[in-house]
Amino acid sequence: MRIVVIESSPHKKGSSNLLAERFMEGARAAGHETAVFDAGHARIAPCLGCGACGMDGPCVQKDDMGKLREEIAKADMMVFVTPLYYFGMSAQLKKVIDRFYAFNGELSARGMKTAMIVAAWDSNDWTMKDIQAHYETLCRYLHFDNRGEVLGMGCGSVAMTKATAYPGEAYRLGKSL
C-alpha cells in the first residue's frame, strides 16, 4: 500500500512529526511505502470558493497543492498529521483540506483509507473532542475509511512526547495496516 503522510506543523522536528515518523516506521516494517508532504512549509493558498473547478477539475490556483493532488492520486491512504492549535487542526492542514474542494468527487468516490495523528500539550479528557469530531465528519462526508487515530495528549515538546506511550501507539498503528 502507498501511504501519503501530510505533515502540517511549522516545527519540522516537533511532536506531531515525531509521531508521524514512528507511524511511518511501523508502516514500512509492515511492507508499505510511505511519502511525506510537508504542508507546514508548502506554498498552499486558501480555497477561494470561486467554484471554477466545479468540484472536479483543476484549481485556478497554481501552487504546491497540485503536487499533493498528484501524490494523493497515487496513494491508497492519507494520514493527516497536526499539532493541536486551539482544539483544532493547524491552519496549514486546514488549507489542504479546504482545497480538496477541487477534487471532492474524485476523493469521495475512492473510499480512501485515512488516519489522523495529533499532538497536544493539554491532557484534559476533553482536549481532543473537537478535532476528533471534525476528522470523523470529514471521513463520513468524503467516504474515507478511517483506519485509526493517535490522539497524543501531554505531547507539548519532543521530550514530553518521547516520555508518553504515543510514539509506540503511532508505530503500532502503522504496523497494523
Rank of each mutant, 00 (worst) to 15 (best):
T161F: 06
L48A: 12
S108L: 04
K175S: 03
Y85V: 12
L142Y: 15
P58G: 06
I44D: 00
Y86Q: 10
F100H: 03
Y135K: 11
G152A: 07
A52E: 05
M24K: 13
A109R: 12
K113S: 02
G111C: 01
Q92G: 11
Y141V: 15
A30S: 07
S9D: 06
L138A: 14
F144I: 02
A163D: 01
I6N: 00
S15W: 05
K94W: 06
K175E: 02
V5D: 00
G168T: 08
N146D: 02
M128F: 08
L68W: 00
A39M: 09
G105Q: 08
T82I: 10
H143K: 15
S16F: 04
A109K: 13
T127D: 00
M153C: 15
A109D: 04
W121D: 11
M78G: 08
C139H: 09
L177Y: 02
A133Q: 13
M77K: 01
G51F: 00
T164K: 14
M55D: 13
A159H: 08
C155Q: 03
K129Y: 10
C50P: 12
M116Q: 12
K74I: 07
T82E: 01
M128K: 03
K175F: 02
M78F: 08
S123R: 13
G174A: 13
N146F: 08
G57I: 04
E136R: 15
P58S: 06
V81Q: 14
L173S: 13
L138G: 06
A159P: 06
K13R: 08
L68T: 01
M112Q: 03
P58D: 05
H41S: 15
T114G: 13
E169C: 10
E25V: 10
E71P: 06
R22N: 14
Y171F: 05
R140F: 09
I117Y: 12
P58V: 10
L138H: 03
G57Q: 04
H32C: 13
E71D: 14
A133H: 11
K12N: 08
C155H: 09
P58E: 06
M77L: 05
E136L: 12
R99S: 05
E21D: 12
C59M: 04
